[in-house]
Design a protein around this nucleic acid. Structure first.
Lengths: 153, 153
DNA sequence: GCTTAATTGCAACTCGTTTGCAACATCGGC
DNA sequence: GCCGATGTTGCAAACGAGTTGCAATTAAGC
């Protein structure tokens, strides 16, 4: 009983992940729960490899093959459970959130730290969309710079 | 003499490319001239592979190994003779132009056609740069959509 | 519990890109 | 114009991220 109460907030996360999987029509497996838990609890985004390392190291016994990570991430992305980020450094990253979580990042060129920017200047209309005759226009926007920690120290 | 006059405009391009190489402190070689000529005359941007095919097929005798293309492009980019574009499709593209040629693209999701956008809305300040404490901030911005040709036909 | 379809692990593979090394071509000096 | 130092090239082999085929396993519905 004591244990049950103590673990409450963590349990809650697990249930959310399970629900998300069931709602999506996916089987609930250990690797999938581990990936969703990781993305829900640590600030990302993470590369497939980073996810693999963390999931494998976590005592949550989510250990699995890297291929499984790739396959789960692909499924999750297809169902909009997670978003893919591409910072142009040769690998892809993922973070929690569906289409409603649209936002952009600023990445430190030195320490690679990633911050999220709350507002999207394109949807804000603070960016004037060029008139191109294209339809169904989406965009990718990322900022790069030197973060305070790096230029201070 | 007749030949000299006849080939004038084309010769001129070659001279420009040669000058660019000499000014950059690079040796003037056939592959390098062929790459610069291609980028100057055809509307890009092009992947290394596309450049290789075109350069090899051109009777200008610029035939060379794909590795050479990669190495030339890396040098050129380091010297800001060309710009790298990344549309997130697993390969990189290059086009002519230094830092003064900063601009963005809109890419058709169907036919992959790439148009250049004349103005940069970010430098226009029509985008309100988020105050993040980061310094030396640059950005990457690309648009994706369906081009008129694709949704018409 | 038992069946079936989904999921996983392993190994082998693809594709864009990079690297080691020996052969070669360019450029500056004679 | 020839020659040597240095930069550049070709080839083959390696690389890393991501994918695929297939047999073994496991979750979900009955």
């Amino acid at each position: 009983m004591a244990t049950k109460h103590h673990a409450h907030s963590h349990k809650q996360e697990k249930v959310d992940a399970e629900d998300a999987l069931r709602n999506a029509g996916l089987k609930v497996t250990k690797p999938r729960l581990a990936i969703l838990d990781l993305l829900a609890s640590e600030h990302g985004p993470f590369t497939p490899d980073e996810i693999h390392v963390r999931v494998t190291q976590s005592k949550a016994a989510g250990a699995c093959d890297l291929v499984t990570i790739y396959r789960c991430l692909a499924k999750f992305e297809g169902l909009s459970l997670i978003n893919r980020c591409d910072f142009g450094d040769g690998t892809v990253r993922y973070e929690l959130g569906g289409k409603d979580h649209h936002h952009h990042h600023i990445i430190c060129r030195l320490c690679k730290r990633v911050d999220s920017l709350p507002d999207c200047p394109v949807e804000d209309k603070s960016i004037k969309m060029p008139k191109t005759g294209f339809r169904d226009v989406s965009h990718r926007l990322e900022f790069f710079g030197i973060c305070p920690d790096c230029y201070a120290g």
